[in-house]
Amino acid sequence: MTQDKNPPHASLINPEDADIRNVAFTTRLEDFVNWSRKNSLWPLPFGTACCAIEYMSVVSSHYDVSRFGAEVVRFSPRQSDCILVLGTVVEKMGPVLREIYDQMLEPKWVIAVGVCASSGGFYRAYHVMQGIDEVVPVDVYVPGCPPTPEGIIYGMMKLQEKITKGGIVRARDRHKLTGK
């Protein structure tokens, strides 16, 4: 790359003088969109039980999830794109979770935090749903009962990885484009 004597902002002011390589870079659209998506997750904490208490630690001063761009906690499903299911979901709660998931706009992701949300945990009982994947599709499972705040943050980083690799077209529209 040739080094321009002018600083970059100067090139911006005089585009005709500038070497294009100093003011722009090329990338794939998917990479760019995914990069911005993964760094601005707006989580919806669907807190039911113990894991929700740990999530309080994740967002508060000590662990500070804003380092990963995911601190804008929204309690409205219409304003968020990542739902964290924190805690046991029982049969009575299942339809509520589904309804909230349906209210979220695409793109949307689900993290099942803790073993209860992942598989029912040690509650093999008459009223406990054996994993939320019975009602909503799950992107990341975080083990632990409850997971440590580090664990929850690791789960969010895993989701960021997944977003980086994913497409930007909605799953339900993909078959229209590809014909499959």
């Binding site: 049969e91 009575k92 339809p95 009982a125 008459y126 009223h127 406990v128 054996q130």
Partner: peptide, 8 residues
Amino acid sequence: PSDGYQRL
């Protein structure tokens, strides 16, 4: 039974 799970 303790695991007599019933669906809604």
